[in-house]
Write a protein that binds this DNA or RNA. Structure first.
Lengths: 224, 224
DNA sequence: CGAAGTATTGAGACGTCTCAAAATTAGTGG
DNA sequence: CCACTAATTTTGAGACGTCTCAATACTTCG
């Protein structure tokens, strides 16, 4: 049984991408909705499903015992997440806003992958994309200044949120951005103000998280 | 043609592990030596080979334009590195000390993986191990204090250098450790002194990098 | 033993964090 | 649609941790 991934209002063609490849391998896809703030899965829980964001946004994070949080990645429409090798999740995943995902049973995918090299290579591809992101993020977390981190973040979101004309509406709050960049929310706010003051960044209308990138070239200069 | 990976003095059984799996898939293995400080491959160079450390130690790093460096991982005997998905390397790899590696042509491995799901899953496994390490390291770089970072580093090395009784001989210098932990070498040195002062750490003999771990339990308490 | 490289230690500078208050935005019920 | 409240964001001032720069000590190697 197949559920057509594209039979979703507002979904984009590219969503068919990665999990779609797997669906051709006779694996069941189904859709699910999570309300804003809901946990999708917790760290150390058994990894029974693989997910792909259809609409909305998801954050994956790790916690230290005293509450310090590191967000490893934001998952936006089209992204595959929850791909683990062991039997349990290494992150907690939560819906940042109301979010729709497609999911498939991990065991069935793995079962197919054991005999079908194409599927196994698809999984390898998705994992490598995640690895590449993590590698770049280590450089950011280990060696970049707060301004460079925020600039890199804005450029990343500009590239992934596919909004027209350099206008991006961030789904996540300052605390999420801070925990993604290894900063405090105050420092993120100050960096944004600084970019605004330099004319690199503009804020649109009265809506909170609407940000207009005025000068991507100068932003890229900051993202060393 | 096979070169027996175990025909190496001092090599441990586990070295046969990962690349050994692939060797069974009729892929050519050969050995190579790199002198201390030598570059094995550079960032953005074509990724023609996959490597496994037989003896010695390797560091993988990224650079910012102004010279700031982030070491993403140390590769110790048994570790597979240089595994890329695209056609080029995402890190620069250098031998920290005189190092022996086995290597195999990437294209031949990939060719086999396209038809043999077992090999593809082996590659997936190795990539996932790297991903898992990167994910843990993001938490360290984003949210841990200098003392916690150094404690985590010592525990990691204690677990991987397979020396008996909590005694480890670090192959890398303070600067390497610092660039791995997102600190300066002075801060690393101060943290080590602090641990020494607390009696958690002892130094052995006159050799520079000989460190004796006295109290793994108390180290683990610091590694939140 | 001397020279070069590496590690330790100290003192002050700097960037980010903490704590606090004010401003803005979002959510809710009238 | 407005008023009210809660949540989020911005801004400020001072504290704190790590970095920078410099001097000393130690290790390695010829």
């Amino acid at each position: 049984m197949f559920i057509n991934v594209n039979a979703h209002p507002g979904s984009k063609p590219k969503i068919l991408g990665e999990l779609g490849q797997l669906s051709r391998a006779r694996v069941i896809l189904s859709e699910f909705n999570y309300n804003r703030g809901t946990e999708i899965y917790g760290q150390a829980e058994p990894a029974d499903y693989i997910y792909q964001v259809v609409d909305g946004a998801v954050r994956s994070h790790k916690l230290l015992s005293d509450g310090r949080r590191q967000i490893g990645a934001f998952h936006l429409p089209g992204d595959v997440f929850g791909l683990e090798n062991g039997t349990e999740h290494r992150f907690t995943a939560e819906a940042i806003v109301d979010t729709t995902v497609t999911l498939m049973k991990r065991c069935s995918v793995e079962h197919v992958a054991e005999s079908d090299a194409t599927v196994a290579l698809d999984l390898l591809n998705m994992t490598t994309i995640n690895l590449q992101h993590a590698e770049d993020h280590m450089l950011l977390l280990g060696r970049k200044t707060s301004l460079e981190r925020v600039a890199a973040f804005l450029l990343e979101m500009d590239g992934r949120l596919t909004a027209a004309g350099g206008v991006i509406a961030l789904p996540m709050c300052r605390r999420d951005i801070a925990d993604y960049l290894g900063l405090t929310l105050e420092t993120v706010s100050r960096a944004l103000s600084q970019l605004h003051g330099k004319g690199i960044l503009g804020f649109l209308g009265q809506t909170q998280r609407q940000i207009m990138l005025l000068d991507r070239t100068r932003l890229a200069d900051l993202d060393l």
